[in-house]
Structure formats: C-alpha cells, structure tokens
Design a binder for these strands. Structure first.
Length: 338
RNA sequence: ACCGAGCCGUAGAAAAU
C-alpha cells in the first residue's frame, strides 16, 4: 500500500495524472484498499478544469468511504475543486467540515483569491476571525496576491500595516509578496522601498523586483538590478530569465535580448517550453522574426501558446502568409487552436 | 539477524492571444 501511495504521489506531482489514476484502480484490482494518504496523493493529479469529472469521481469514492468530512481530505478536495474551476463545489465541501483549522480556512481564501473572487475571500477572512482563528503567513500571502491592480493600492498599504503588526513581515516570502503587490498596484517606489530594506534577499525576491520593472516597461532598471543580483552572488533561475525577457520586448532591447539568450543557453534553460516561448515572443516584439523562427524550430516540445507567439509575431509584422501557413502546420501537428 | 530508505491537506517570483 505504501509503495502504491508513493508511486501515485510521484505521478500526481509530476502531472502524470493518467498513470496516477491507472495505478489507483490497479491497486484495487489487486485487493489493496486505498487509504486517506492514497486519496490525498491522488487529488494532486487534478490540476485544471479538464480534470473536473475525474476529480468528481474521486470525490464520490471519498464520500463512500466517509472521508469527506476529514479536515485534511476535505482541504485537498477543496483545493482540487478550485483548481478545476468550481468554487461552488469547493464551498459545498467546506460547509460539510465541522473541525475548521487554519489550513482549511487558508485553502478557501487562497482559492477565492486565485479565482478572482476577492469579495468572497475577504468574507471568508472575516468569518475566520469570528470563528476565533488568527491569520498566519499563508493567509496574508493569499490576500496580498489578490491586491493586483492600481485600484488596490490603498488597501494593499493597509494590509502591509496589518502584516507589520502581526510580525510576519520579517519573512522573505512575505517581503516578496509585498514587493509583488506594490508592483502590481503600480507603485514601484513602494516596491523598491520594501526591497531595499531587506538584508537577506533570495532569488525569488530579486526576481519579483526585476519582474516589477520589466512589467512596467523599465527595462534598464531591470537589467541594473540583474547586475546587482549577480554582484551579490545570486544565481538567476528560470523565473529570473523569464522576467528579464519580458523587459526586452521592445525593438531597442534586441541586443540585450540576444545577450540574454546566450546566457539562457549557458544555463541550459533554452529547451524549456516557457522560456522558449518567451524567447520567441521577445524576438517577435523586437521584429526579429528570423531569430524567433530559429528558436521555434529548435524547440522539441511546443504547445498552443508557443505556436501562438510566433503566429502573432508574423501577423503583427504584416506576414499574413507565414502566419496562416504556421496555423495550418500547427493543426497538422495535432495542436488545437484556442 | 542487524541497519537503512519510500506515500500524507493551504502559503512568495513564470510564457502567447
């Protein structure tokens, strides 16, 4: 049983949901009875709306086993339903759980935040306080994430104060979320103020600040920070490069983009789907379609986003024929347009 | 025989249109 659980857990975490599911059924053919851990592991395999039906089937089995009201299984179910796009089902599970701990409340708050249902998230937060449960770091991280537009700057600042009072502001993770919040709310000055105060910065924090500049079109600041990051002895990772590529999506940054490309190759990230797509996008926005095409042709795996990046590149540069050819080739290779 | 290893709920940065 433990071996099966371990394998299911691995498959689920690697996104191999078919194999996870198959093993789940096979173990039962061999008279092994799934336990709580089996379900907790399996539920991680369902990650998007297309998995909704499968997730529901597992929910039925959990229900039959009377595990639905168990707070840990319930939390995993709730997260599954949010990932599969059904806040309603998530809330239904929540209603059936009596013993509500902080993790359960956090899962609801996080789910609503990610779904863009800020109001419901804040309502959950209020109810949680009424139930006598104090917010923890995860609670604040979720709510910070939902302050993602200029309209939320004031609210974000208030929240920042609450976080300071609560003592969680010392965590680098919270700091990173604060920097991200201020960036998304359009206040790079506040973001930078938080960033500069920190003596110990990790890669995510550097990347968040770089992404803030990149997103706002401040490419030079992004690269200055990248230099400072390396001077501080930090190794950039995939996320850092993705943020920097975003900063190069203007013709003036073509040379910077090429330089980055070579660093990406050195670091071995050039075969990554997302990095590859970002490279294609960068070259397209710099109007260097030949370079974009070269990256595209060298990619081993392409998804609809990869194809769209290049198709859009051709379109925006008046190359309708190539765009249409590519569109047809995409379908011949079995990728559905969205 | 002894020793060791393996599964378990929320939480910061990420691509096109």
């Amino acid at each position: 049983l433990i071996s099966c659980n371990a394998a299911i857990s691995r498959f689920a975490k690697q996104g191999r949901r078919g194999e996870a599911f198959a093993l789940f059924f096979r173990m039962q053919d061999e008279q092994l009875r799934p336990n709580r851990v089996t379900f907790l592991s399996l539920l991680k395999a369902f990650t998007s709306p297309r998995d909704f039906e499968s997730g529901k089937r597992v929910h039925d089995l959990i229900f039959e086993r009377c595990l639905e009201a168990d707070v840990r299984v319930g939390t995993a179910l709730i997260c599954m339903y949010f990932r599969c796009g059904s806040p309603q089902d998530a809330h239904r599970v929540f209603s059936g759980i009596q013993e509500r701990d902080i993790i359960l409340w956090n899962a609801m708050i996080e789910g609503y935040c990610v779904a863009g249902l800020r109001g419901r998230a804040l309502e959950m937060f209020r109810q949680m306080r009424i139930a006598g449960i104090e917010p923890d770091m995860a609670t604040f991280l979720s709510i910070l994430k939902s302050c993602n537009g200029t309209a939320y700057l004031d609210e974000g600042k208030q929240l920042h104060n609450v976080i300071i009072e609560s003592g969680f502001e010392l965590s680098v993770r919270v700091q990173s979320a604060l920097v991200g919040m201020y960036s998304k709310c359009g206040s790079l000055v506040d973001a930078r103020r938080v960033f500069d105060k920190l003596p110990r910065k990790d890669v995510s924090l550097w990347t968040t600040m770089i992404a803030g500049y990149a997103q706002a079109g401040h490419g030079n600041e992004a690269f200055e920070l990248f230099q400072a990051m390396r001077d501080a002895g930090m190794q950039p990772n995939k996320m850092t490069f993705l943020a920097l590529l975003k900063a190069c999506t203007r013709p003036e940054f073509l040379q910077k983009g090429k330089w980055l490309h070579s660093r990406i190759q050195l670091a071995g990230y050039d075969s990554d789907e997302k990095v590859g797509t970002a490279l294609i996008n960068t070259y397209c926005k710099c109007r260097s379609l030949v370079d974009a095409r070269k990256v595209f042709d060298d990619l081993r795996t392409k998804n609809v986003i990869t194809w769209t990046a290049l198709i859009a590149g051709y379109s925006h540069n008046g190359r309708a024929e190539e765009a249409l050819d590519l569109y047809e080739q995409m379908q011949r290779e079995g990728v559905q347009p969205n």
